[in-house]
Nucleic acid binder design. Sequence first.
DNA 1: TCTATATTCAATAGATCACTTGAATGTTTA
DNA 2: TAAACATTCAAGTGATCTATTGAATATAGA
Lengths: 220, 220
Amino acid sequence: MSTSPKAALLEEYALVAQALAAPARLMILEHLAQGESGVDRLAAKTGLSMANCSQHLQQLRRAGLVTSRKDGKAVIYRMTDNRTLALMDTLRIVAERNLARVAVILRDLSDGQDMPDPVSRAELAARLAEGSVTVLDMRPVDEFASAHIPGAVHTPMDTLDRIAASLDPAAEIVAYCRGPYCIYAHQAVAALRRLGLNARRLEGGLPEWRADGRAVATLE
Amino acid sequence: MSTSPKAALLEEYALVAQALAAPARLMILEHLAQGESGVDRLAAKTGLSMANCSQHLQQLRRAGLVTSRKDGKAVIYRMTDNRTLALMDTLRIVAERNLARVAVILRDLSDGQDMPDPVSRAELAARLAEGSVTVLDMRPVDEFASAHIPGAVHTPMDTLDRIAASLDPAAEIVAYCRGPYCIYAHQAVAALRRLGLNARRLEGGLPEWRADGRAVATLE
DNA sequence: TCTATATTCAATAGATCACTTGAATGTTTA
DNA sequence: TAAACATTCAAGTGATCTATTGAATATAGA
């Protein structure tokens, strides 16, 4: 006599939630959303030790959120599908709307300035088509190289001031980064607006852009 | 020097996921989706002890998924909003698509029979309007009494055989229960189809029906 | 075959979690 | 004011989780 089917189902659902219930694993998922990756690269990106990162990845795999394949001596992990992206996004939305602490952190990120609503991906696509917008990609160079929004200017945080100086004050600027869990775009927009520039944040990041089926460019 | 804003945000998101990461709390949320409720009723419905249930509820409140108010000597808890419903539904969908064990449990529930796709709520509403469908509500009597789909026949599991005998074999039958986490409708449809009746399951349950803004009836 | 590399396993310590028990709090009713 | 009630708090136990360490496995290339 095993457990009831109801209890068994709830345990499985809880297992999936459990997989999302550690900051380290959310971080890993954010990076996997950029594209598949081996363990050591993920460990380096997230700052976790190899063994720890490997164990988190196995927990994510047990919950069905990622899958893996072997490639030579490397094991390449990838997100199972972008339903996981939807799950993470709903998680974020619930946290933002229901937890005062989250609202405070987000407000602090913009240094008390009023921030305009983010630009939808559809709107950005339309503006790009008519060439009426400057797009800034705030991610590290390797992520920019592997995929970015066509025409985007690579602007890692440490180059922001320099690039900001070269921007036309009248231009409309849209900044994006890894996605809704990434704060680079928030910080960039806050900094640019403090300089008097007309900057807004893209809704979502590159993974969401790609999930919409929109074109991306790569370097080389 | 506190933690970085990024880490702080991830911790908050993880806190929300954490709240969903225990079967007991998912069970509580399923009941709260039916409507607000005091601690002792929830404890009775879920089979948890009062103290344990109270502690789970406080954890859900810390994660922003439920809110509470005092009513006399009772504390009434309710879901904060139906974004939580969306979160739970995405959780279930990811589990169903990615975890083989979940698929097995669901298949066992239907006893190996091929089950038809569930009926969408819009389709049921249309059929109801033209009177061409029999709707069965599989939930306990108190939940049926507090809200049900207008015209639904109250059919708790222990009365299913008796009521099935009275149904026209040519009739189209739709069964529903608490929602996607509840298995009564699955079991009922499997039993009815084994008897040769033309039964299907409603997509979602009463909370989803109500979240769509559709009318519900109450007893007395 | 030997060696270097990428990843996983196994064992462990400390932290956190779920649940129980019994006492404490606050509210209504007698 | 006292008694009854609904809920929460506090403390304790066993189980589970996270991260660390060092060893084990598997593969590629010399």
